[in-house]
């Protein structure tokens, strides 16, 4: 049980960062399929820099910069060049996958994998016996995650900036009538998203494994998007959705460790994706229902 919870927490942290981060983009009206790519390039940048400098701080900074730069490119293509955000987002992800593999080959002369000498610090050391792996396994980013979620909640729900983001994504006409510069708000929202996805990538690369591999993210960026939708575009809800998807992943990990032979391993590995589909459908049904009830209420009141 303890193992399961520890595994859940570990799997949830990157999902929470990426999921809460992508709320900024989604609330600003952009369905950001480049998250997966941002996570992967951040992970690559972090491991690459850590490999060269052995400095975790520089690694995180580098990851943030790379992710922000790619986000600006994405923003420019959809906002200035009016490209389609979904296809451009998939393009950003493919570019990141290709770019990371390419640079891995060109700079480090490696194929598929790069190890880092250092990793994210773990505030509570597990040297002495008796301390549960629940706390010792968590990296500094894991401990920081609830704070990040609350911070994003504060920004999105309690500042003028957050209101503007929602206004831009929800009702363009009204946003312009309120004097909001939409393009700039979208850029800022995208940069906020880049921070979340970048930290998610760093956690994946330096939190546990201390290594980069080409399939490190494995679709987690897309699951993070689903978590955001499932969390009703609310940071707290998204964080809980991330925990939920994390536990689905943990079931796979734990059953694998104990080689429980109920199901072949691939079927366990596909559960997070299947559950995502199921819950996305349930939340779509719930949303429709809510809209219908709402309309009936307005009608009844008028």
């Amino acid at each position: 049980m303890e193992e399961f919870i520890a595994s859940t927490l570990r799997s949830s942290v990157p999902l929470a960062y990426a999921g809460v981060g992508c709320l900024f983009a989604i609330r600003a009206g952009i369905f950001h399929l480049g998250i997966e790519g941002l996570m992967l390039s951040s992970a690559f940048a972090a491991v690459g820099i850590a490999h060269e400098t052995d400095s975790v701080l520089l690694a995180v900074a580098g990851a943030l910069v790379v992710s922000a730069a790619l986000s600006v490119v994405y923003w420019a293509t959809i906002d200035l060049l009016h490209a389609d955000s979904i296809i451009a987002g998939l393009g950003l992800t493919t570019l990141s996958v290709g770019g990371a593999a390419f640079l891995l080959d060109v700079i480090f002369d490696q194929r598929g994998r790069l190890d880092s000498g250092v990793g994210l610090p773990r505030p509570i050391k597990g040297a002495q016996a008796g301390i549960s792996s629940l706390v010792t396994d968590l990296s500094i980013l894991g401990w920081f995650a609830p704070l990040f979620v609350l911070l994003c909640w504060l920004v999105l729900r309690r500042t003028a900036f957050g209101l503007r983001i929602t206004a831009v994504g929800s009702y363009s006409y009204g946003a312009r009538a309120a004097g909001i510069r939409e393009s700039r708000i979208r850029l800022h929202a995208m940069l906020c998203t880049s921070v979340g996805s970048s930290l998610a990538g760093v956690e994946l690369a330096l939190g546990g494994l201390r290594a980069f591999s080409e399939d490190l993210t494995g679709g987690r960026g897309f699951i993070a998007l689903a978590a955001a939708l499932f969390g009703q575009l609310n940071p707290i809800g998204t964080a809980f959705a991330a925990l939920f998807f994390g536990s689905a992943n943990a079931i796979g990990v734990v059953t694998q460790i104990h080689s429980v032979d109920v199901l072949p391993r691939p079927f366990i590995l596909m559960t997070p994706f299947v559950i995502t589909i199921l819950f996305l459908t349930l939340s779509a049904i719930a949303t429709r229902r809510a809209a219908r009830l709402r309309r009936e209420r307005i009608v009844a009141e008028s």
Binding site: Y74, T77, H82, G91, L95, G98, G99
Partner: peptide
Amino acid sequence: PPSGLRIIEGVVALLITAQ
């Protein structure tokens, strides 16, 4: 490296729908 192809495809997808 073969990943160069991915880079080309990625940039094409990023830009192709730009009007």
